[in-house]
Amino acid sequence: MNWQPSASIATLKQRAIILASVRDFFAQRDVMEVDTPAMSQATVTDVHLQTFNTTFVGPGAANGKTLYLQTSPEFHMKRLLCAGSGAIFQICKSFRNEESGRYHNPEFTMLEWYRPGFNHIDLMAEMDVLLQQVLNTAPSDSMSYQQAFIEHLAIDPLTADLEQLRQLAMSHDLGDFVATEQDHDTLLQLLFCFKIEPKIGLERPIMIYDFPASQAALAQISPADSRVAERFEVYYRGIELANGFHELADSDEQHDRFKIDNQKRVAAGLAPQPIDLHLIAALNAGLPDCAGVALGIDRLIMLALDQTHIDQVIAFEVQRS
């Protein structure tokens, strides 16, 4: 029985130092640390996120009530913003089922922060300062999602039709399923993962911004170009490090997106998820104009300490837990 941690004690000391420096980064900027629940009565509807759940039994729940472990602290943090918290950050555990591998552990540590008055471009600039401080990197590059496809694959992701994407994916031998794939975003994600991501952010981090509107998640649609959403992702040395939004504040639109997600889940043979009506009510009361971002702390530490597997930076990976 191997009871030893999967990370060395020396690595865990370095990890503690990095976490302290992240907290200091936000303290210097008057961003308040918060601590929101890890369990919730509702959860994300994203068709590609599988949740863990558990059953609460107690007063008011004699027959058991399902609680979901958060996949990120986003919904609770947005409710704090709606309640007038101002700028906030959190470092907490998040839980995603069916995810395990070199860059995934089913529970992992997430840094999430929100900046009222910022849009996604402002937040990318703040992210860059944090990365330079923690990773000692040169200033980040940035490129739009559209530019990245044009530069690396000579195709415009915003105008290419399904057949053109299929042909391109087939010409790169990206799987037999491609020939009959019906989902535009699946093909874009496939091409991005295997043909763009390995080539970008190798020397310094790169921020890819303005994702297709169909991959908006919880980001606003750009007022300048309705084909794109004000969402960005950070990549460095083959690792997807962070995902940020200029946050969608429209409660009706958010509610509709959740419902459409659930329809997609049912179509994919998955159970629909309970929509977080607390969040919808909070957005309805008013979310200040803000940008927010989630960063995988374990991956940040992998990069900072030049480690190749997430197990090397967390105390006990799932097989030893």
């Binding site: 590609h48 069916e98 990206l174 799987g175 991959q215 992702e233 997807e240 995988g296």
Partner: peptide, 26 residues
């Protein structure tokens, strides 16, 4: 290979047992 938002993929290295050919499949 699992993006934070979006479809997950499996990148697999396989050996065909009869021809002995080794190839990558997604």
């Amino acid at each position: 290979v699992k993006p934070g938002k979006g479809q997950a993929f499996n990148r697999v290295k396989v050996r065909k047992l009869i021809s002995g050919k080794v190839l990558e499949k997604t």
